[in-house]
Amino acid sequence: MSLKVLEVSSLTVRFDGRVALDRVSLEITTPEVFCIVGPNGAGKTTLLRTILGLVKPTRGHVRVLGHDPFKEPEKVRRMIGYVPQRASLNLEIPILVKDVVLMGRVPKRGIGVFSRKDYEVAKEALELVGLIDFWNEPFKHLSGGQQQRVLLARALSTEPEILMLDEPFAGVDSLSKALIMNTLRDMVKQGVTVMLVSHEINDVLEIADEVMLLNRRVLAMGRPKEVLKFYLSIAKVTFKGD
């Protein structure tokens, strides 16, 4: 039996008595683009954070390439390249694009200065997202889409087995969106599993191999067209109900 990339089983998370995730299960067996779609407060980011071992579940278990993120958190987190929401960044800090991309090498490097290999990997990652000319530019001078691509380059420079992206298309222009999608597709071809979160189903239809509709519990999961059909049917019911 081959090793599953990700296994989430009956995951329940409660914050202060409020249910954030209710018996969520999913399985990824081969590298693909897996998208989690849901409204604000649906538990999408909580699911990612639980898989990373940052949020402890009330019930259920998670396995990332066979490892338990709560027993081996460092090991699991170093297999995952994480792209956070841009809103969580501190843009007040004076920082250049190269500094941001090199951060992806920090967990691998440990104490000490970056090696030549770290610089090479970081430059390759920035090249992949088409921003190598911006190596020495201040990060905050870039557009939202460019910043998102730099964050993707940072995640790529960790040489991950799984890429996790939290709302990567929020406030991103169409060109950057297309470039991000192309890069993600290339990564899947190279054997990397991509897991991305979005509150907008239309943003992920083009790229997704599988879509999960989440609103604290799993509403639907499957091929994008099937999930879209379901999504439209519930939207219709909601609309009629209104």
Partner: peptide, 10 residues
């Protein structure tokens, strides 16, 4: 720069 990202990356 990115507390959440740093934590997520181990």
């Amino acid at each position: 720069f990115d507390t959440d990202g740093a934590r997520a990356m181990g």
